[in-house]
Design a protein around this nucleic acid. Structure first.
Length: 418
RNA sequence: GUGGGCGUAGCCGAGCGGUUAAGGCGCCAGGUUGUGGCCCUGGAGAUCGAGGGUUCGAAUCCCUCCGCUCACCCCA
């Protein structure tokens, strides 16, 4: 038997409600803030992701699904949403549009990882990006929008964590300081942190090991080593966030896994468990990314969430998407002549835009009515020999359990007037 | 990549050396000749993840593989 590949899953009809619910809220928020939808290809030139995400990061080092197409071009299944959008921004000359250009997407994301709760090899992300504007007010707006999105889903007990990791002017000096600080404790660190020390020093800050946390607590904070511009920017973001009443926590240990982030970074986590893998979503500024892809210097900021993680949280909090109400017509019949009438009526009703069910074969009326019930039909039409003879049909209300005989010719009018 | 847990019908799940392999949900049929939702009765559906071994006998014990799952790493 074939199975869905490891780390992937089918989203069955019974689960679709959650996803449609999230998409509905997301689209609503995007509409309100003036974002327009964009869809980009599932795969891209492999170099796009190596350049942007960072050659040393885990994502490109060991998590991409990459292949050569039949002409030998290196391709990679999209492992994140931002780079393709920057590519599209450049490719289509969007710098000629009023800035910032605001785009949102729902996209499948692929990463070859060991699956676990809330972590899959293919998952669905909702994200939005605002490109071409560096005003800290935009940072605050994006963070606010992310926050309102979660609130509109009904999720509680979330915390918005915000930090600034500086820009290419001030970050190198900060990293040196950080390494300088850590170098005196190097033999106290866990093996992972020793590797981080070399590979990605920022990550040292969010190690969960108690021993390392002690060291991290005394580490220099990025926000205290920002250049004047970055410091001013960060202060403004915080000020605007207070103006728009988004509760947030400064978290100087918040860092993100992709190399392209600059200045503002933020993450939404369930309150209490501020572990690394519990993040529902996050984002940040990437003011150099478009330039690195060959465009003019263009500041930008974005945000993305994992849909499956939202579903997980919705379930944990007992939030269910609004249940679809009973709707539709079930057409039942007894006997072959009645079946012919039923087929005709079903087609006619569908042409009139009505949801119609009926059952095949020669099931008993009882069996048909059972189906009508399980399918959630609101009304049933029943054809028997008598009805066929005198041109009527039984019209049954499945909720109230009442029924009437009506002339077949009046059925469509009867339904479309309601 | 590392470590832990688990694999019995579509789903949940009992059984833990000798049973016709429970039970529940769901599905199908019937309970008056043309009517659902509750109830009752019956039925279909399982090479007990796969392969090997131990044993008179294995779903039950051992080994190998495969798969799932959780945690770490990392990320959404």
């Amino acid at each position: 038997m074939y199975k869905a590949p490891r780390g992937t899953s089918d989203i069955l009809p019974a689960e679709q409600g959650y996803f449609r619910y999230i998409e509905g809220r997301a689209s609503e928020i995007c509409q309100r803030y003036g974002y327009e939808r964009i869809d980009t290809p599932v795969f891209e030139d492999a170099r796009l992701f190596i350049r942007t995400i960072g050659p040393g990061t885990d994502i490109v080092e060991k998590e991409t699904y990459s292949f050569e197409d039949r002409s030998g071009q290196g391709m990679t299944l999209r492992p994140e949403g931002t780079a393709p959008i920057c590519r599209a921004y450049l490719e289509h000359g969007m710098h000629n549009l009023p800035q910032p250009v605001r785009l949102y997407y729902f996209a499948a994301i692929f990463r070859y990882e060991r699956p676990q709760k809330g972590r899959y090899r293919q998952h669905q992300q909702f994200g939005f990006e605002a490109l071409g504007e560096g005003d800290p007010a935009l940072d605050a707006e994006v963070i606010e929008m992310a926050w309102r999105f979660f609130k509109s889903l009904g999720l509680r007990k979330l915390s918005m964590q915000v930090n600034s990791i500086g820009c290419r002017l001030c970050r190198p000096a900060y990293l040196e300081r950080l390494k300088g600080y850590y170098s005196q404790y190097i033999d106290r660190l866990c093996p992972e942190c020793k590797a981080r020390f070399r590979k990605n020093p920022l990550r040292l800050l969010d190690c969960k090991k108690p021993s390392c946390q002690g060291v991290a607590a005394g580490a220099p904070k990025s926000v205290e080593h920002l250049c004047p511009e970055c410091r001013e920017h960060f202060k403004s973001v915080a000020r605007y966030l207070r103006l728009v009443k988004v509760p947030f926590k400064k978290n100087h240990r918040l860092v993100r896994g992709l190399d392209y982030y600059t200045r503002t970074v933020f993450e939404v986590q369930p309150e209490g468990e501020e572990g690394a893998q519990s993040a529902l979503g996050g984002g940040g500024r990437y003011d150099n990314l478009i330039e690195e892809l060959g465009g003019k210097p263009t500041p930008a900021i974005g945000f993305a969430v994992g849909m499956e993680r939202i579903v997980l949280n919705l379930k944990e909090q007992g939030i269910t998407p609004p249940a679809p109400e009973r709707q539709g017509i079930f057409v039942a019949y007894v006997g072959d002549e009645a079946k012919a009438e039923a087929v005709k009526l079903a087609a006619e009703l569908r042409r009139a835009g009505v949801l119609v069910y009926w059952s095949f074969g020669r099931k008993s009326l009882k069996a048909q009515m059972r189906q009508a019930n399980v399918l959630g039909a609101e009304y049933a039409f029943i054809f028997g020999e008598d009805e066929v003879r005198n041109g009527t049909v039984v019209y049954r209300d499945m909720v109230e359990g009442e029924q009437w005989k009506v002339p077949v010719g009046e059925v469509v009018a009867l339904l479309t007037q309601v």
